[in-house]
Amino acid sequence: MTENPSIWQRCKVWFHRWGSPAWFYRTSGYIIPWLWGLCFILALPGLYLGLFVAPADYLQGDSYRIIYIHVPSAWMSMMIFALMAAFGLIGMVWRIRIAETMAICSAPIGAAFTLIALLTGSLWGKPTWGTYWQWDARMTSELVLLFLYIGVMALYQSIDEPRKAARSASLLALVGLVNLPIIHYSVQWWNTLHQGSTIKLDIGESSMDTSMLIPLLLVVAASKFYYAAVLLSRSRGLLLQQDQHKRWPQELWHANKADPT
């Protein structure tokens, strides 16, 4: 080994350190408050601008203000599922336990976001469409996503050995990935009640005024930090629960570093 390791080698060592439960537990404890801070810094002005500054929509009136929670939740529900499958794949291929833990801990957060998307969507649908629910392609595929999350959590709970359970649940998450393009393209593939994409990140301009778009993007960014903070928090808890009879939690406790936050 060279005396002065390169930046690449240092990054590699830093990345591999995350594989140690003790290091993960301690380091994530320092990161979580920063993630919460960023989440609040973005969410509070976003919600303020969305609820109290943005004008009413010319067609939907004020009911459109629900999108400031509906759209970020719907996006997060799909992003978390993709990340859960990615963590699961890393866990299955490289047998990294932290990746398996993060895959499993992503499931309840993703399910919560999916539930929020469905509830707020139906509360927006009533004044806009005149109905809380319709067996429309977008709504039905989002409901299937919720069932997939519940399936992943149920499968994990049904197997006693945690690592085997995590691998089985990861496999289900990988199979469930097929639902994501169905959700995304459902409004294009079928004639649905649900409107098409208002915000276009790739081609074309968003059909939304800047005064309405900026608060939405702030809340979208805040939801990412919320997910990261809750994911790390859940992962710490699960690692501590699984390893409570091992040496590292006791060593951390003795060193009075178990709860740096």
């Binding site: 009413a56 009911s63 903070a229 928090s233």
Partner: peptide, 28 residues
């Protein structure tokens, strides 16, 4: 702009935000 709080859609907006807040706080 707080006119919407007295508008016909206030019930739906308040319910949506209250449910979201409850779920988000519980998960955190």
């Amino acid at each position: 702009n707080i006119e919407w709080m007295h508008g016909q859609h206030a019930y739906y907006i308040f319910t949506a935000y209250a449910l979201t807040l409850a779920i988000v706080v519980y998960c955190a």
